[in-house]
Every structure is written in C-alpha cells, then in structure tokens.
Design a protein around this nucleic acid. Structure first.
Lengths: 338, 338
DNA sequence: CTGAAAGCGCTTACAG
DNA sequence: CTGAAAGCGCTTACAG
C-alpha cells in the first residue's frame, strides 16, 4: 500500500503491466475498449500496487472537480434537521465517488470565487430565503445547482425540493377536527416568509373546508420557547380561547405548551398542540409533542437525483409525516403512513 | 466576470498584461520577486479579467489538495455540539483558503482511498473512540491529522485536543459542596469509555478531597432521557438518596430530573442536577439545567493551529465552562468565568 | 485493440 | 527582474 517513493502513479502501473499509460487509463475509463486479457493484467497491476488515480490530475484533464459546494451557515440555534440532511446528502453524493465541499461564507462573492477557481461542479443551496439571489446568479452563469427550499418569488430558476407545508397543515386541521377540536389556532413567525405563508394557507384552507373559524392567529417574534409562550398568551387572552394550536416550529410549540400548562390547561386534553420538524425537543417534552416530520431522506435523494438529471426548472414538493404524541393524540389513518 | 469562451486562464492574464505566464504566477505566489511596476500591471489585468487560478491545476503542480477531510458519522441522536464544531472548524479552515471535504464512511479503507487519490491534505478526526485505530494508521503513513478527542490508550500518536473532563467534574463537586450538598452521585454511561472514566475520576477525586462519599454511582445503558430516569431510580432506591447528581450528558440529566420530580423531589432544592454539553435541552427544561459548556470555539481554533504547526504528538486539554441554571443554582466565582 | 501525441492550467527551479 | 523549459499525473481524440 504505502510505497516508498511516494504514491503510485499511472506510469508505474503501466510499467508493471507492460502496457502504455493510455491503456491503463482506458481500463479505468473505457474498459470495453481494451482486450479482456490485457484488461485483466492491468487490473491485477492496479490491485497489486494499490493504485488510485490522482484526483487533481484527473480533474484537471476532465475539467471536473468531483465536489459539490454546500454552505454551512452560522446558526444562532442548532438545527438537527438540517444537520441530518447534510449527513444524508453527503452519503448520497459519495455513492458516485464525489464529495461535499463545505464553506461558511454566505455572500455571493464566495460562490463566485468557488466557481472561478473551478473548485466545485455544482452547489446545493440550503437555508433558502425569500427572493434568494443565489438562484438567479448561478442560473445566469450556467452553474449547476439544486435548491432545498423555495424562494417564493414566482419564477424560481433551477430545480428545487421542498416540503408540502400547506398540505400537511390542511391535514393537521382535518385530524384535529376528527379529535373534536373546533377552535384551531395558528402560531406563525413574524416577518412572514413564504414558508410561513404556505403553512398558514394550508391551515386556513382546512378550516374553511371544515367550516371552522380561522381567525385565531398569532405571530411569534423569534423561533424560541419564550416567543411561543408569548404568542400563546395572546391567544388565551380572548373570550373563547383555542382548543388546538398548530405552531410552525417545535420550539414555538414547546412555548405554547408551557404557557398552556402555566394557565392550568392540560396539554392534549384541554388544548392540542402540534409543532414542526420532529426535533429532539418533541420527544423530550413531558407526554411528547405531536410534530410534523420532514422526509429528510427523500429530500437528500431527490436533491442528488435532480443534480444529476439536469432537469431544468423542475420543482418537487414532498409530503410531511405527522408523528402523533401526547400533546395532540391524533389518530392517524393509513393515508398518513406513506 | 463571466467571460464568453469559458473561464479566464493565466495565459489570458499574461497576454493582457504583456508578460509571460510565469510572471503572472510569480505575482500570485512570490510577489517580491517581480518589479513593482510590472506587478501592478499584472494585478490590474487579474482584476479586470476576474482571474482566479484553477484549483486543480494549482493543486496538481503543488501536490496539495487544499482540502481537509472530515468524517460526518451517522448519528442515532443529533449532536448540536459537534455540528457547531464543524461549522467553526470550516470557518477557521476557510481563513487560509482551504476547505473541508466531507465523507460519511467510517472504515479505514475510506481514509486510505482519500489518501491514495490525494484528495485531502490532512484529516480532522472526530468522534474518537477508545483505542481508535485511525490515529496509528495515519501516523504510520505520515498523513497529517489532528484528533478532537482522545483514544485513551497511553501513547496516542498525533496531536489532539480535548475537554478537561476530570477538571470540570472536580470543580462541580466543589461548587455543589459549597451549595451544601454532601451526597453527590455520578451518572455515567455503561460500557465505560475513557471519557466516562476521566469525568468519573474528577468526581471521585473531588469527593475524596472534600471528605465526601463517592459510592453513589449509576451507569445508564444509553444516552437517552429514559436511561437517565432508570439510573436515577436506582440511586433513589437507597437508604440515604443523593442530594446532588452529576450526569455525563444532558439527555441523562433530563432523565434524572424527570425521575426526581416524579418521586416528589424538587429539582435544585431537594436534589441538584448537572449535565454536559449545554445542549438546547438544557435551556428548555423547566427551570433550566445546569450544564458544562464545552469551549467549542477554542477547540476549533486549536485544531487548526495544531494542523498547521506540525506539532508532533502534542495534546491539549481545555477547561469546560459551568453554566448555572435552576437545576443546580451554583454560585460561580471569577475562577469559573475564564 | 494499443500507443504516440497533445493538452488540461498551473508552478517551480533555472537560465539569461 | 523576466521568460523559456520542464513537469505535476491524468485523459481524450487519433493514428496505426
């Protein structure tokens, strides 16, 4: 394995097998072109010497990088969901001998730099924001990419994958209604983003379809337990308080839950509460928090599929999975277990 | 920026500046060697054309990769602490124009492959286990690496960084004693690892130094809330139950807390509880969980320092920081706020 | 089927 | 200080 005299090159394999370097290359890249006998001989030499083509040399010749750029942004609060996604994405990309190249800079100049250096073949865009400028910038320069998340601005360039937030919220309303709930509130985030609006839309549509009121709405100022508690305080400070709350994140839901308990309400009984992302919080909360699990494996797989299929501007929405726990003991039907 | 005719090469810069390609290269890599006037002219051309050297070509010539390998292992349970570390490490490495290359395979053959392909310059080893075989393998082949975590087997090859677990546990005992606690228990993990033993050693040493008993010990079978609860049940099922518990992880501490409450004990009052890692859980728990925060910024910085200093087999232990919350309202002194 | 040639885009000694 | 030469280790047409 570890030869003296540095790493093994294609020249040594060629010498060892008694062929030219081109033939070794052909065995690796176009095996059908070389005689089975020669092929076997070369393969033995490769095996014996533990040869692996030098990545940089190969990349230079093929004008590829074998790397996919991924921005790992600074987060004020950890996001286990995104970390899981990164892991699965990395594994998926590895299957084709490529790897993920990580960077932290968020400015477009960082992308420009990576492109100019030919350091990556493509990008996977995450933490997409409304009107994200990266998509257009990359598309204009013919740099391949796939977006995890939408920019919510009409004609989004490039392929993308996202959760069907409206769909799962609609479904939550239906299931909460089955549970006998009729005053279903929604706790979103202030500074309404496309994602928020999407989920809110599903909630509204569900309420309308079932003839339930959809006027119980509170917006939290941050994605924290405290902000969730504050939002719940607002909701409870009305004539007829809600008997169910759909929160757009788990921390908010935990805050809602805590405030409810503080005001003497029994979670799951007096008020049903649901969150999003099925974070570790959800199972640690007393009694458990019902939450929407995102199909993170499918997201990762789909992203790589789109990356490799050059599928134009195709967008894919995937359904969320409702995980029922004590905070909202929803009875799932076969429709919910895909 | 985006020129027709593909990306800008060094040849075009040379033409544009009226010099040879070597001179352009020198301006980039040994500016002192070229005449200030020429240098300025070349720099203008670089600027005008938006030139950035092709990474692969440069790498091939310099026999470097500009990439640091990092294995992102599959986790059954999310680890926000390690994810933070990865982010900080990436940022730190970026400062020198390098990047992190991610992979998921844990077998040594994955490392061997990356090395043979010259895909990375070095590795950062995380999720180190007792008697980890990677360190010796890499050291034997002169592949640079730095370990985050110890192998706990005597002569560990290569530089490493780790938490002073014994030190912070010793300190915890002292502070809990100041709080009037005299029956301080320890909840570790079964299948005792070096990390466990290190922390346990600190706890034992602290108890001994203060003339406190150190016989209250329970081992949890998994790193979960449930296992923590089970361990606490064991500890409470004795003649004189503990009035303080040091748990080696936050999930275990949450389990301890929950079990205590279930048995009618008031956390922070009847029994003080501390955890490790200052995870999001710690601040979400009612009243808050006192926890040991790891100096993750310093870890990342130190790892990169060691990576670049070729500092032989130097090992660095860094102190933990105690974050006091309701579950163990420890009074910190200036000694604890470094 | 196989190999001699050219080239990928840089850098590193080394003459001038 | 500057440039002609050689080389990094591959691959890709293209003759034979």
């Amino acid at each position: 394995m570890a030869r003296p005299g540095g790493p093994v090159t294609i020249r040594q394999v060629a010498l060892n097998a008694g062929v030219s370097r081109q033939t070794v290359s052909n065995v690796l890249n176009a095996p059908h072109r070389v005689d089975p006998v020669t092929r076997q001989r070369v393969r033995s030499a490769i095996e014996d010497l533990g040869y692996r083509p030098n990545r940089n040399a190969r990349n230079l010749a093929t004008r590829r990088a074998g790397l996919i750029g991924y921005c790992l942004p600074a987060r004020d609060t950890p996001n286990p969901f995104m970390d899981r996604f990164l892991h699965l994405l990395t594994a998926e990309i590895e299957r084709s001998g490529r790897h993920v190249l990580l960077f932290t800079g968020t400015g477009i100049e960082v992308y420009a730099d990576l492109v100019a250096q030919r350091a990556v073949d493509a990008f996977v865009l995450v933490d997409t924001v409304d009107h994200d400028c990266r998509h257009r910038w990359l598309a204009d320069r013919d740099v391949p990419f796939v977006s995890f998340g939408r920019t919510w601005d009409g004609r989004q360039p490039g392929p993308w994958v996202d959760l069907d937030g409206a769909g799962v919220c609609y479904r939550l309303v239906t299931l909460l209604c089955d549970l006998g709930r009729s005053r279903i509130a929604f706790v979103g985030r202030a500074g309404v983003t496309g994602q928020n609006l999407d989920r809110m839309r599903g909630w509204k549509a569900g309420c309308t379809a079932l003839d339930l009121p959809s006027d119980r709405l509170a917006l939290a100022v941050a994605d924290t337990v405290e902000a969730g508690g504050a939002a719940m305080r607002v909701l409870l400070d009305t004539e007829v308080p809600p008997d169910a709350v759909i929160a757009v994140t788990d921390p908010l839901a935990v805050g809602v839950l805590r405030e409810a308990r503080r005001q003497g309400l029994r979670p799951g009984t007096d008020v049903a509460v649901t969150g999003f992302d099925d974070s570790p919080l959800a199972s640690v909360v007393d009694g458990g928090l019902t939450s929407v699990r995102q199909p993170v494996e499918r997201f990762a797989r789909t992203v790589v599929d789109l990356l490799d299929s050059a599928n134009g501007d195709r967008g894919v929405v995937l359904p969320g999975e409702i995980i029922s726990r004590g905070s909202a003991p929803i009875r799932l039907t076969e429709q919910d277990v895909n």
